[in-house]
């Protein structure tokens, strides 16, 4: 069933159109940066963007930081919202459930397909970022890449930490996917499910900026998203990375349980 779901997702042209559109913004930023040579001033702009002018190998990270706050979660929410509600809207959910596999397995297959989508999307953004970065900007300086703490990272260290950052961003997006999947079992409208997931994220981002909400800040789903920057400090600052992973794990666990409780007892009529 997982294979079926994966094939279905990656054979759809709209999946690849979504990924392509997602890459358009970082590429545009790279081109503008190359043409104008105007890096963001210190304290402004996405992480790593100022450092890209002297080291193109850092552009995959800047590209992830550019799409992370809005574009990536929108893409994930749209695909996740479509997972079950899309089948219901198209009238195919009944037929899917007619198979002996059962609803729990269908839910798991949908989640695995979503995880694959998130991973592929993040990898493509990073890969396109690397190609664009090394083509448009200077390659890595001979002395190694400078970490956020001012030490030098070898090429191997940079590659290792970039791989960890890609993994971390992927896990950060699983919370969005879980919200989308849960809402997708509540409604027959994929749009409503995607908007529901986005409403949660907008609320979380807004509360995070509010001092009055600081007691609940550690539990907001977007709280630790930018912690991937901590992987490039020296020594690595694990505190927020570990908390971010645990928090996403809790959200995925709880929302999947809620989706399971709702979906396995739901009357499916379409």
């Amino acid at each position: 069933m997982i294979g079926v779901e994966l094939r279905k997702l990656f054979r759809r042209p709209r999946t690849w159109v979504t990924i392509a559109v997602l890459n358009a913004l970082p590429v545009l930023v790279a081109v503008l940066l190359q043409l104008t040579d105007l890096a963001p001033r210190p304290g402004e702009g996405p992480p790593f963007l100022s450092a890209v002018l002297t080291n193109g190998a850092l552009f995959p990270l800047a590209a992830l930081a550019i799409v992370l706050p809005l574009f990536l979660p929108i893409a994930v929410a749209v695909v996740a919202g479509d997972a079950v509600a899309g089948e219901a809207q198209a009238g195919t959910l009944r037929y899917l459930l007619a198979r002996p596999a059962g609803r729990t397995r269908l839910l798991l297959a949908k989640l695995v397909a979503l995880m694959a989508f998130v991973l592929v999307t993040v990898l493509v953004v990073a890969a396109v970022g690397y190609v664009v970065g090394t083509t448009l900007f200077e390659a890595q300086p001979t002395g190694g890449t400078t970490s956020v703490s001012g030490t030098s990272l070898t090429q191997t260290e940079l590659a290792g930490r970039s791989a960890m950052a890609i993994g971390y961003v992927t896990v950060s997006m699983l919370g969005v996917a879980a919200f989308g999947l849960f809402f997708s079992t509540l409604t027959d409208s994929p749009l409503a499910a995607a908007l529901g997931a986005l409403a949660v994220l907008v609320t979380s981002s807004l509360l995070f900026t509010l001092d009055a909400a600081s007691p609940i800040a550690p539990y907001l789903p977007t709280r630790y998203w930018l912690a991937f920057v901590d992987l490039f400090r020296d020594p690595v600052l694990w505190r927020d990375v570990v908390r971010g992973l645990a928090l996403q794990g809790v959200y995925v666990g709880v929302l999947l349980a809620a989706a399971w409780a709702n979906f396995t007892t739901k009357d499916v009529t379409s």
Partner: peptide
């Protein structure tokens, strides 16, 4: 002592001869 910000950091390294202040976003030591 490193002051950690979301997109960078400023580190003050003290040694017996003085201090180095590293600012990642400005790229200055």
């Amino acid at each position: 002592v490193d002051v950690v910000a979301a997109a960078g950091e400023t580190g003050v390294h003290r040694d017996p001869g003085g201090t180095w202040t590293w600012d990642f976003e400005a790229g200055t030591a």
